[in-house]
Design a protein around this nucleic acid. Structure first.
Length: 282
DNA sequence: CGGAGCTCCTGGGAGC
DNA sequence: TGCTCCCAGGAGCTCC
């Protein structure tokens, strides 16, 4: 699910609730939740019990929690993962995968994930930047993101612009919703060829990506249902500000034309037929 | 090698 | 009520 704004919302909540706390116990309730941790659940648990969480960091859609050991808990929410702070007395969620308790007996941290596409792992020595996510590009909210290099790489690709926006090794953090929103703002159809974008057009696209991500962070992310919530189970409200995604048949906020829905990469894409004309050739 | 398609899961909702 | 089909905010793997 969660794209950069939703993950950032979770990061902010987690940092507030778990930074400085020491893990007492770890329970793994489903093996798929730690499938990226190859040594298995016994090792996962042993690496974490007694460790203090220093902070919560994020790159793109990945989170990591640096520990006082120099290791880190690295995680991805996948399509349906949630990190929730819960009192120990709260009922166990149906899809609870991992539970952390802390030595202060305060709220627990629970990883809940219906579809099990998400997961956590311990990254040895990964406190600074886990090796597991070194293949991921910086995200556009990162102060060290290189705009010029992005524009050059984007224009050097032989692919379609939406596919490129979803390529986490080119630019991280953008998913299906915010790709459609940035393309709508840019007046570009997702099937446009990246190597035919002018430099100014590519720079405008990046600016729109950054703007829409920033606005969504302020709104606490986009929530269509209870699957996408912050660490306290609360929904964001950026869905009210969407211009394209999920608006099939509704009037374009710029020109009034009905928003269309098309299949692309086996998923839905939403765009304005008038503001975002389909390219002649693919 | 870069690019494109398939696959891993569960459950909600629509349609019959 | 109950079945079947379609859909979902992702990304790693594998093929060409």
């Amino acid at each position: 699910m969660p794209e950069l704004p939703e993950v950032e919302t979770v990061r902010q909540g987690l940092a507030k609730w778990v930074a400085g706390r020491t893990i007492r116990t770890v329970e793994v309730h489903h093996p798929r939740a730690i499938r990226r941790h190859l040594p298995g659940d016994g090792h996962f648990i042993a690496m974490l019990q007694g460790r203090t969480v220093l902070d919560v960091s994020r790159r793109g859609k990945y989170l990591w929690l640096p520990l006082d050991s120099g290791d880190a808990i690295v995680g991805h929410l996948g399509m349906s993962g949630q990190l929730l702070m819960q009192p120990a007395t709260a009922e166990t969620e149906k899809h609870l995968r991992i539970r952390f308790t802390f030595t202060d007996d305060g709220p627990e941290l629970r990883f809940v994930d219906q579809r099990t596409f998400g997961g956590l792992a311990v990254s040895e020595g990964g406190a600074e930047l886990p090796a597991e996510i070194s293949h991921i590009a910086r995200d556009p909210m990162d102060p060290l993101f290189d705009d010029e290099a992005f524009v050059a790489r984007l224009r050097g690709k032989h692919t379609e612009v939406k596919r490129a926006l979803l390529d986490q090794t080119l630019i991280s953090g953008v998913g299906n919703i915010y790709a459609d929103e940035a393309l709508w703002r840019s007046g570009l159809h997702g099937n446009r060829a990246t190597d035919q974008l002018t430099r100014p057009a590519a720079k405008r696209l990046l600016a729109h990506v950054r703007d829409v991500l920033g606005e969504a962070i302020v709104a606490g992310g986009t929530s269509f249902d209870a699957l996408y919530v912050n660490v306290n189970g609360e929904s964001g409200y950026f869905d009210r500000a969407l211009n394209a995604y999920g608006r099939e048949g509704q009037p374009c906020h710029r020109c009034g034309t009905a928003i269309r829905r098309e299949q692309f990469m086996n998923r839905s894409s939403f765009s304005c037929p008038r503001c975002q004309p389909r390219p002649r050739t693919r």
